[in-house]
């Protein structure tokens, strides 16, 4: 990482601690905000957060590794999570999964080479009466069919420009 980039990240994190506080209980909100704006919780940022909250970096790392919505690997701009729990499974989530893999060219757990999409599973999304359900970042899609997959992905691609600008400002 460039030194200037490191400094920018550090100053962003300082701003976050100003907003959420420097208590241990601010750790989750800080990590969630970092993930939302930078798509990545890097080792460097974990070290900075640990310094700011005055805890050991391994404490930060252990929290990041525990929660499935916090990842230490770089994530795509769009994180797709397909529900695999029983009701969605019974409604054909398996076929949707196959089509997602086909259309994105990656398997579950992987990110597309252009960094746009990460494909993953979710456990029950609370849409059991309208399955199969799928979460794209914070947006929920219900009654997804293999045919609909393509248009959902296109929708993401076409909003990508807007999405990226908004996030730069937020950062």
């Amino acid at each position: 990482m460039l030194v200037t980039e490191q400094e920018r990240l550090r100053s962003n994190l300082v701003k976050m601690t100003d907003r959420f506080g420097r208590d241990r209980s601010a750790l989750m909100p800080i990590l969630q905000e970092l993930k939302r704006t930078r798509y990545h919780i890097s080792e460097y940022s974990m070290q900075v957060i640990a310094d700011l909250l005055d805890i050991h970096p391994v404490e930060v790392s252990s929290v990041v590794s525990f929660y499935s919505f916090l990842e230490d690997k770089p994530q795509g701009q769009f994180v797709i999570r397909l529900c695999r729990t029983i009701a969605c499974d019974m409604n054909g989530a398996g076929n949707v999964a196959r089509q997602l893999e086909n259309d994105l060219g990656v398997e579950f757990g992987e990110t597309t080479p252009d960094g746009k999409f990460t494909l993953g599973w979710a456990n029950c999304l609370g849409m059991c009466d309208q399955g199969p359900a799928m979460l794209v970042n914070e947006k929920i899609y219900t009654q997804v069919t293999p045919e609909k997959v393509h248009s959902i992905l296109e929708e993401c691609r076409s909003t990508f420009g807007v999405h990226a600008t908004v996030d730069k400002e937020r950062c």
């Binding site: 029983i86 009701a87 849409m127």
Partner: peptide, 11 residues
Amino acid sequence: DEGEPGTFKDR
């Protein structure tokens, strides 16, 4: 934190 499979009434 409604996570029980099959539950969505809290939503």
